[in-house]
Design a protein around this nucleic acid. Structure first.
Lengths: 341, 341
DNA sequence: TATTTTCGTGTAATCGATTACATAACCTAT
DNA sequence: ATAGGTTATGTAATCGATTACACGAAAATA
């Protein structure tokens, strides 16, 4: 078991004080060049490693940043985290992961735990719709810990965010369906209290409006992001007096469920029915009947969030800049919406 | 900006010393009940939060554990991490993520960075085949930091591991192909210097042997875990004098590539050609032609790794127990290997 | 030569919590 | 009444690094 070497050990060996050693290691200009070299050599030969915990206690900065996501095992969030990790790694930050499982209580706990652990910043995708966690958010800000939302954002003063233009995402996906000749376009929407889902819905609505299609409330089904939910939605929609001939789904999983159910009913995709999803999950590309989907460039979103964080810690003055980055969505057109002309 | 409350602030307010406050907060039995209550009340009213960094410095334990994976944005690793996080969260540990991108140099860096950050344990899937990182591994062990390998393991004294029985996984997948009547079964193998891929290959070989099928070296193609690699492999295999009629692939992505290429050549799956993969990536289930694959129960693997870690830190004596947990693989039989009788 | 700078290093406080040891107050038994 | 035992709390060191301030010696200036 190797015992730990501290600056005191180095000091003792060289008959100088720990203060001098510390200064030498930190390239303090007041240290004589010969002393510095001697210290550096000795430190290396003794295999000295700086104790990050002591440094953290003294400086109040842990060099850790916290990331809170609903869950980590979805391609979208995993990719965002990948982007964050890659961007922050060269700057010496470690990434701590927390999951909320869409549970506001867990989100609240996670926020306090991260502050407790004295992270230097928090990057997160909000879970909660409620404002019961507002106190926790303000607690973060009061502690002067940079807080950055990605993808799922919330309006809070002083909080920067990195999102995609969900309105546009909803718009271009719907437009593509219209361009294929679809007339009755349904929408599987997510939790409307979350900005992202509301905006996708509004984009859908606007696309209809701009193209002279009347909006029909019955065509909007609120559903979870699951295959099962997609199946259920289709079953409801096909019962309508005038069933739709296309779906824009806020979720790829629901889109997949819809497709499976349509296939079971021998409805031909895309000839009789078109389906577009959202998120560009890997499977949408791999399917034999590949699914058109809106890409959110998660890797870029992660990197951008990390950059916004870095900018914020670089600001020495405590004037809070609130930065809102909005990335452009990109529609990946695939077989599920590609009718032959 | 809220100023930080320390035990000294509480002590001053109550005209006692910080030592007493500390003891009261830690439920030290030597403290008078009335004092304890007073301290607890005051602490609560002043909104006192223990400084974890100071505690970490004093105790030498950071309450962080490090997880090193090749990359986080693969369903398998993301799920393992999810399992780890969920198991460790109730115990107050935070999970720090590192990625190697299959680069031994990054693996080496990550190991030192985590030790530097004084994590209480390291859970990882090895990247490297080389033994150039052996020094780093031993450095971890010398520091008495529990080290646990999951999935991709390596033989190092004192290191526990949680893996699946890859041999059996290869065996049951191959057996299923044989049961479907396939006679010439090829194998897309991974990097043979990694245990997991070697064992899957050996399982494949044994299944052939046990069923009276001669092993043919030409049927084994070493390929990366990518769609492209799968396509290339098929092209080589179909050029053979006696082309195979089935493939057991060590990777789902390569299996997918093979399927796409076979389809382009109008070869009927599973009637003319069967394909089985490994990992049970989500898309294997979602495909219209769903792919048979070996499940590695990643969530369980993550939880189990975390449990092994907890057992190890619970051991007060420094006798290193080396625990090797081997989980059972489970074959998910799907359309790509389901011939009609 | 006397005085002021400059340079390099030492002293000691600090970050916040824990804990071995010391001590005061009170109680009990002979 | 005195020695010994409890009980509750205080004192001070410790974890390892940083840094404001102090100070002696050498160098520069008058």
């Amino acid at each position: 078991m190797s015992e730990k070497i501290t600056i005191y050990d180095i000091a003792k060996k060289l008959n100088i004080t720990a203060a001098t050693v510390s200064r030498a290691l930190n390239n303090n200009p007041k240290i004589k060049e010969s002393t510095r070299e001697l210290v550096l050599e000795t430190a290396a030969s003794m295999n000295y490693k700086q104790n990050k915990l002591a440094l953290a206690l003294k400086s109040g900065r842990s060099n850790n940043i916290g990331v809170i996501v609903p869950r980590i095992d979805s391609n979208f969030f995993a990719s965002v985290i990948r982007g964050i990790e890659e961007e922050l790694y060269p700057h010496g930050y470690q990434v701590i992961i927390c999951q909320t499982h869409e549970n506001p209580k867990r989100e609240n706990e996670n926020l306090y735990t991260l502050i407790d652990a004295q992270v230097d910043g928090i990057l997160m995708s909000v879970t909660a719709v409620t404002n019961e966690n507002d106190k926790a958010f303000h607690n973060v800000l009061e502690k002067n810990v940079p807080l950055i939302f990605f993808d799922r954002s919330k309006h809070i003063n002083g909080v920067s965010s990195v999102t995609i233009n969900d309105f546009k995402g909803g718009y271009i996906a719907t437009k593509q369906l219209i361009d294929q000749g679809c007339k009755c376009i349904a929408h599987l929407s997510g939790d409307q209290s979350l900005e992202i889902f509301k905006n996708r819905f509004l984009g859908y609505k606007q696309a209809l409006l701009d193209n002279g299609i009347t909006f029909n409330e019955k065509y909007v089904i609120q559903s979870k992001s699951s295959v099962e939910a997609g199946k259920n939605a289709i079953n409801i929609l096909l019962e309508l007096e005038t069933p739709p001939d296309a779906i824009f789904s806020s979720s790829d999983f629901a889109a997949l469920g819809a497709i499976e159910e349509l296939r079971d009913r021998n409805i031909n995709i895309p000839q009789e029915f078109c389906v577009a999803g959202f998120s560009n999950e890997p499977f949408t590309k791999f399917m034999e009947l590949s699914i058109t989907s809106v890409d959110q460039s998660p890797l870029e979103m992660g990197k951008m969030s990390a950059r916004v964080f870095l900018e914020q810690v670089a600001k020495t003055d405590s004037i809070k800049i609130e930065k809102k980055v909005v990335l452009a969505p990109e529609l990946h057109i695939r077989k599920s919406t590609s009718r032959e002309k």
